[in-house]
Amino acid sequence: MATLSVREQEELRREGAAELGATEVVGRTPRQLFWVRFRRDKVALVALAFLVLLVLATILASPITRAVAHPPNAQFPNALDPQFGTPTGPSSTFPFGVDKVGEDVFSRVLYGARVSLEVAFLATFLSVAIGVVLGMTAGYYRGWVDTLISRVIDVTLAFPILLLALGIGSACSLGKGCAGGTVKPGLPTVIVAIVVINWTYIGRIIRGQVLSLREKEFVEAARAAGATDRWILFREILPNLAAPIVVYSTLVVPQNILLEAALSFLGVGINPPQASWGEMIAEATPIFNTAWWFFAFPGAALLLTVLAFNLLGDGVRDALDPRTTP
């Protein structure tokens, strides 16, 4: 605690004063409270910094590879072992080594980050959006709408998750895609497979929350004031769901990254030549004992990214939990 800045000391002093009921009470919005708590979690801050760097690296992937490495799909047969034509390990020109066909593993790992982050954000956003809307509808209107949505959730959760995703993935990876070609193989298929499964978890949580929120006085007041259902749902109830939505989203992002990688590893997700961490590990599996760098680096990247999201999620959850002392 010796390294607190003046501003943080001031904040701590005020908090202490507020707790003791002293005269100097500063009102704080929930968002400010969140920041004060979150900033104290050093591990979560490091994880956040890592993820920001990762996002920057994927945005700048092409200048970076041009400066220090090679384009992701360019093949360098000269980099293969001259005698056996096998992949060669890390060197000064290829920091992570080369793969079977002489592609730069470093560049492919960097471009693979793009896929992981795209899936992480897009699939999470879509499943949360669908889950929130359907969960709110079920909880607010109750009756047959609720029964229908709840039963759909029950049925989805009765599937073995990876097998359902594999099923959708394989059905959509044949030929031109599925549902009449609207869902193309590759990234869209992976996202559809994830969203179909994942919206149910948040849908169930939100439904439960709304069931109790709809009985609260402020909803009654809004209704008495003549508010429409849509106003009540989106202007009165939705803001109260912010905390569970944020907590759930941080929980599901790392799971989505792992699911994408697993699908690509099993060959029904992202297909070569596009680089993806799961697909790279799959390619590396048959030669894992001769070319360790080929599976080690994409796997380590995957592990670090998922770990960072998990640590960030833990930090966010703790900071949002009203039971933790500010």
């Binding site: 790392p254 792992l258 990688a261 697993a262 590893f265 799961g278 590990i281 590396a284 599996t285 894992f288 004992n289 360790w292 599976f295 080690a296 796997g299 995957l302 592990l303 998922v306 770990l307 998990n310 640590l311 833990d314």
Partner: peptide
């Protein structure tokens, strides 16, 4: 525990074999 949760199982398998 957090590292174990974050690691993809098939990759752990390769590392173990290696």
């Amino acid at each position: 525990a957090l590292v174990a949760i974050s690691a993809p199982v098939y990759w752990l398998g390769l590392v173990a074999l290696f």
